[in-house]
């Protein structure tokens, strides 16, 4: 096996572990914390920690794959509404990927976590306002943004700690570059 092929296998194995973590944490949050009612349905989104890691370590492609894994889990396990999470998730992963590739090592887990949470919530609020054609839905957006900073910090911190535990380095799998 060539060195490249071996590195590729390592990436896929670690990405698969992140995928499992996405599913586990999504379900844990849904069934353990699902009863807690937040402002207009804003959730912590713990699973996003592993999407953040996938984007930083393996690139945007893996971020989108993990997001669709979460979406599928949501459809199968919780029969939740699809349209808003779909819009929110795609914009969120795109925003996190963009900010990660623009700022590179100048940005840490905190900024990417907060960007992802804010992008998700802003998109969901705008999607709801458009589909119900009512600007009044934006009334709770300030509270949602505040919670985005809080919850984004939590997911960012989990992403950072997981990177230590899994011994992942920044940049593509295999190349053992420190951040």
């Amino acid at each position: 096996m060539s060195k490249n092929a071996r590195n590729h296998t390592g990436t896929n194995r670690k990405a698969a572990i992140l995928g499992i973590l996405v599913i586990v944490f999504f379900l844990l949050e849904h069934f353990l914390l699902g009863g807690i009612k937040m402002t207009e349905g804003v959730k912590i989104g713990l699973y996003n920690a592993f999407i953040i890691l996938a984007i930083i370590k393996f690139g945007p492609k893996y971020g989108f794959i993990l997001f669709f894994l979460k979406l599928l889990t949501g459809i199968v396990a919780t029969s939740a509404a699809l349209l808003y999470p779909l819009c929110g998730g795609i914009i969120s992963v795109a925003a996190m990927s963009a900010i990660n590739s623009i700022f590179k090592e100048k940005i840490g887990y905190l900024g990417i976590g907060i960007t992802g949470a804010a992008a998700y919530n802003i998109t969901v609020y705008i999607a709801a306002a458009v589909s119900l054609s009512s600007a009044a839905i934006l009334y709770n957006l300030p509270a949602a943004l505040l919670l985005s900073v809080l919850f984004g910090s939590v997911t960012g911190a989990i992403a950072y700690l997981t990177s230590k535990v899994m011994n992942l380095s920044r940049t593509n799998g295999g190349k053992n570059e420190e951040i």
């Binding site: 900010i99 700022f103 100048k106 940005i107 840490g108 887990y109 905190l110 900024g111 907060i114 960007t115 804010a118 957006l141 300030p142 509270a143 943004l145 505040l146 985005s148 900073v149 910090s153 960012g156 911190a157 950072y160 951040i179």
Partner: peptide
């Protein structure tokens, strides 16, 4: 590694917009 200058900048920008919208 967790909170660099740009991270604090992003957090501040979002908090300020939340404040103005509120």
């Amino acid at each position: 590694k967790f909170a660099k200058k740009k991270d604090i900048l992003i957090a501040s920008l979002i908090l300020i917009s939340a404040f103005i919208l509120a």
